[in-house]
Amino acid sequence: MTAPLQFEDVALPGLGSRITLEVPEHRAVVVTGPEASGVDALPGFALALARPAAGRVLLFGEDVANLSRRDALAFRRQVGYLPAGDGLLHNLSLRDNVALPLRYGSDFTEREIDGRIRIMLTLVKLADAPDLRPADATDEQRRRAALARALAFDPGLVILADPFDGLTTRAAAELLELARGGETETGSRRTVFMTGQSIPQLLEPRVEVRYRLAQGELVRDA
């Protein structure tokens, strides 16, 4: 079976080196590396928000960078994306931020969206703070809301950029479990691809495949 996400001989920005990497289905995969290692560019390449100088990235077997703008946007709605920082819209409440992808990209009624949002907010423990604006929320609340937004469509693949920065290990563990979406016989229900400078050591057993990117080399951790 084709892996949901494949990096084929992709050139890292600012470095001469290239990497090849597969994110298998029902697995959590993390690539960590220092700031200038090019690790930050991988989520953007995965979603074709940026194009690598060489190589290609296949998302569900499709080279999204070759799609028209319209098709690429529609394709990305199959994937949950948590950008670095959180990327919440500051003029919307946390609830409206979570609702945005559903309101824009689905034919659900407002009532159905409302129900779905309530479940998502409860799952990420924001049921008591749905009307907060991002500027009034804590870092952890914002990250929780951003994850709820990424999972709003219940995607099969989730891409998380720097998901645990500034979080306690406990909060990070909760978010990782939510991203995994439960367990199946073959592994996590969702495929999870994460990048960042590091992940808390306690979470390592919950991430099946771990890579480290250093000096242009992708090394798989034992």
Binding site: R69, R77, A84, G85, G87, H90, P101
Partner: peptide, 20 residues
């Protein structure tokens, strides 16, 4: 407002979610 959205990464996040 739009420049702030861009600097704060909101535009990138919208595109990543499939919202133009």
């Amino acid at each position: 407002e739009l420049a702030t959205n861009k600097v704060m990464g909101e535009i990138n996040a919208l595109e990543g979610m499939g919202i133009d």
